[in-house]
Design a protein around this nucleic acid. Structure first.
Lengths: 187, 187
DNA sequence: ACGGTTTTTTATCATTTGTAAAGTTATAAT
DNA sequence: ATTATAACTTTACAAATGATAAAAAACCGT
């Protein structure tokens, strides 16, 4: 997915404004297993996934909790870091070799102050990320783990090929053993 | 809480920009039990709570699920409606008589296009709401219901006086009976 | 204060989910 | 191919939670 279409998918931008953003973007590449963002660090870079898949997870006392998967076209950002310049909650780990568009938040902030189109683009960006977060919250509130598993693989069938079940179980808020039981019943 | 301090708490605004927003704000009053926002309707008004308390909940097959409480200084908005002009997920119900500042999203959008300070204020507004939603999501992911209850009343002790336990149980993702057992153990 | 309603607690039993451990399958490296 | 490691499934048992019903307590309007 090309960077200009990713940017303009958020909201239509004048050509000049698009170039101003593209000018501060770098294409970078990291291998599977690379930790792209770290909890407890202030992370000032935002990424858009050109190719690959990643997960966000939190280190808890009783193990990791995965709460996000991102693939081609998705945004990788520690919102706490991006918004408030404080260490975020989550680690982001690449689950495949990835190609990413890298965008520095400080450079972007300079553009926000100068260009009203980019300011409103940044607003739309935050608003859309908000809707996605809200959806994730609401999905967690409803249905049994079994229902949510069925929905997940219906909407993201390729996830099963690309992500290991322990992460999916964690994402669903159940143990891997429980997920195994669910999968056995669905056969 | 006065409206100018609510607005400037989000981000410092020039006086002229503040007045432009204040000009399109009305103070309104509704009784306890009033439904301020409706799921399945496009709601184009945003509210800031001057006085009172409210909850957001979703009507599910097996009853209501409360997932947000708001009090003085908090923002009441159906983000789905505000951002994408589509019906939202949630009902908002007033749990006390309330005084509210009412702000129309369409009028606000006009200001976003005209004033770069207001555009960036709107960006910060969305960003801060995003952080709050993220926090709510993350809190749901961790700890037992009992731990989350203890945390909730530690951070919001007055909630127990102002909100009935059935709503708090729903917020914690457990039944009211389960919450009663938890409370009995903590004594 | 009274009666009626709502809210909260308590008790019982059934179900779900977790933990631990063992067994099976798949994957990767040499 | 062989071995070692990681991923996934299965089982048995324990703990937590839900459903339901009923009792107790708190609240409200008159």
């Amino acid at each position: 997915m090309e960077i200009t279409s990713i940017l303009n998918k958020i909201v239509e931008l004048p050509k000049a404004s698009t170039s101003h953003i593209v000018d501060i973007i770098n294409e970078v590449e990291y291998p599977k297993g690379h930790r792209l963002l770290n909890a407890d660090k202030v992370e000032r870079d935002i990424y858009f996934i050109k190719k690959g898949i990643a997960r966000a997870y939190i280190d808890a006392a009783d193990g990791e909790v995965t709460f996000w998967f991102g693939k081609e076209g998705d945004t990788v950002v520690s919102m706490k870091s991006y918004v408030s310049n404080q260490p975020g909650y989550e680690h982001i780990e690449l689950l495949e070799d990835c190609i990413l568009y890298q965008l520095n938040a400080d450079a972007l902030n300079d553009l926000f102050a100068k260009d009203v189109y980019i300011a409103n683009w940044g607003r739309k960006f935050a608003e859309q990320e908000l809707l996605k977060t809200e959806e994730r919250l609401i999905e967690r509130l409803f249905g049994t783990a079994s229902e949510r598993y069925s929905k997940l693989i219906k909407n993201n069938p390729e996830l099963l090929q690309r992500v290991q079940l322990s992460h999916i179980a964690s994402f669903l808020g159940i143990t891997q053993v429980s997920l195994s039981r669910i999968r056995a019943k669905l056969k």
